[in-house]
Write a protein that binds this DNA or RNA. Structure first.
Lengths: 224, 224
DNA sequence: TTTAGTTACTGACCATTAGTCATTTATTAC
DNA sequence: GTAATAAATGACTAATGGTCAGTAACTAAA
């Protein structure tokens, strides 16, 4: 049954090719300004064909986003399986996410679509589920690292690791979003460098969830 | 010149009436699903007339949002001018914002539009400026309270009050957004009550920006 | 090679809807 | 009463997400 397999492979390949085109257009114009006709032209396919592979424009957008999420997952996974200390891993999670924000700004913006009402209203259940699984993978890495940190007595035991995860993540996310949208404004008007503010808040939160032992280790690591 | 004045008043009134209708429709359907025809019908006016008062659908959306922002401003301003201790005021800011989130969820969602790419792309410069001024008023209250807190030695002096403000605000915002979108999911899947998480993270951050004196006072206040 | 059947693709077409503008209606001024 | 001004209208346009009847390409059996 080599033919059937080849066809499946080709279909998969076409799907990816469409995503290549979609990525280009979405990166350039964003979700609302991008048109399906443009994407079709970029993909060298007719518009109708796009709909054979993706249910809607929003679904396609998320298809692209998933690539970005996968990249983030791989970065995180690399941390998870590395052989540095747990504290170091936790710090790395933050650093890597911040680098991700710098290097993959467009993906960062796309990920934010997951938190918009449009996502909950206009996306097919199927795609929602797919996104959910991918997001889950990322959270699993975070959770497992924080759980270890807790087991090792680095993190204050009265909190749930996942809870700490969502706190740290949300905190970074909110400031990054602000940097992305109003960074210049805050610099000009209040002379505040939100990049620095992000470091400050991350450090504040991080220190406040560490045990005494965790803090000692952290101080040693930060001094290096 | 009584007539001219009356006309200005009537025009202003019409603008508000249109916002009444728009608010109803936007609250019900959200920005993208609401149509101008619907709003026109709700306002008992023709669609063309709407455009005599607002430049675009997005501008109108922000007109509605501004009402919500004003309400928040008034709540904040009330705190600012109240005669409780500064520490109490700071805590009140958080509490009031959280209540605002509970009571005016739709407005909360609208405020988030300010952080979306759509806002930066599809809104008239004029409306952007108006929003900016309103937002500014809110920040001014926060800033002035935090500045006082710093002057009184409650807040660690190595930070900028506005910086602390944006940290606290962003932190709350991010978790509220998550509660709004995925609150149920987190409860069901991880058995995490994000409402509680919000309290935790706010407390953590808050404590970590207080001086020793501030913390003593805080402990006293929290025990009451 | 021919033919029937299947799959992939096409692009004209449809429906929706934000925004416009020539025209009509109402109000004011003289 | 009439001219001038302001307010309101709604048919129309343009843009665009999505559809579907028809076409082309490929596969498999005769």
């Amino acid at each position: 049954m080599g033919i059937t397999e080849r066809k499946v492979r080709e279909k998969e390949h076409r799907k990816e090719e469409i995503l290549d085109a979609a990525k280009k257009v979405f990166f350039e114009k964003g979700l609302s300004a991008a048109t399906m006709d443009e994407i079709a032209e970029a993909a060298e396919l007719s518009k109708g064909t796009l709909y054979l592979y993706y249910k809607s424009k929003e679904d396609m957008y998320l298809g692209v986003m998933m690539r970005g999420m996968e990249e983030l997952y791989e970065d995180f996974e690399r941390i998870g399986t590395s052989s540095v200390s747990t504290l170091h891993k936790i710090m790395e999670l933050g650093d890597v996410y911040r680098k991700y924000f710098d290097k993959h700004r467009k993906f960062f913006r796309m990920i934010h679509f997951l938190q918009s009402p449009q996502f909950h209203k206009q996306v097919s259940d199927e795609m929602k589920k797919t996104c959910d699984m991918e997001t889950q993978r990322v959270w699993n890495v975070i959770n497992s690292i924080l759980q270890t940190g807790m087991d090792e007595g680095l993190l204050r035991p009265n909190y749930n690791p996942m809870e700490l995860g969502v706190i740290l993540w949300s905190n970074m996310n909110a400031l990054m979003l602000r940097i992305d949208n109003e960074g210049d404004k805050w610099k000009k008007r209040f002379n505040i460098d939100l990049e620095h503010t992000l470091s400050v808040s991350t450090t504040l939160l991080f220190e406040s969830i560490l045990t005494t032992r965790g803090r000692t280790e952290y101080a040693a690591l930060a001094n290096k």
